[in-house]
């Protein structure tokens, strides 16, 4: 029936993954900083909410520091592995799981 009379899909898309799902943790941190903290500060400025602006910037500063620390840690590990001649072997950790398997077919 839907092939004869297509119906626009509305509401929750079954199995739909959110933006920035298939990324590393540090990228996810950046996404949340950019989307929630930055947007919160921007919207607060647009609506004249000084407290919201300050809160958004406080969160962004904390996120920036955390992301910087993690980035240094990752670079240090990478440098240590390079010097030791270790080649990181990809595992299936990021590719399997109850939701990840389902999502592969339904997203």
């Amino acid at each position: 029936m839907t092939s004869l009379w297509p119906i626009e899909r509305i509401g929750f898309y079954e199995g739909q993954a959110s933006a920035f799902y298939n990324v590393s943790a540090i990228e996810r941190d950046y996404f949340e900083m950019w989307y929630f903290d930055n947007l919160g500060a921007y919207k607060s400025a647009a609506h004249g909410n000084l407290e919201g602006v300050e809160q958004g910037h406080r969160k962004m500063e904390a996120a920036l520091e955390s992301i910087g620390n993690k980035a240094r840690e990752i670079r240090d590990i990478s440098e240590t592995e390079r010097k030791a001649g270790i080649e990181p072997e990809p595992s299936g950790l990021w590719q399997t799981g109850a939701y990840t398997d389902y999502n592969r077919e339904h997203n």
Partner: peptide, 22 residues
């Protein structure tokens, strides 16, 4: 709550869990 505080927040948890145990 269906979306921002729910589904994507769970996605973020899965990413961070993998990062923590990798």
């Amino acid at each position: 709550y269906q979306w921002w505080h729910g589904q994507p927040a769970l996605d973020g948890d899965l990413i961070r869990i993998r990062d923590a145990i990798e």
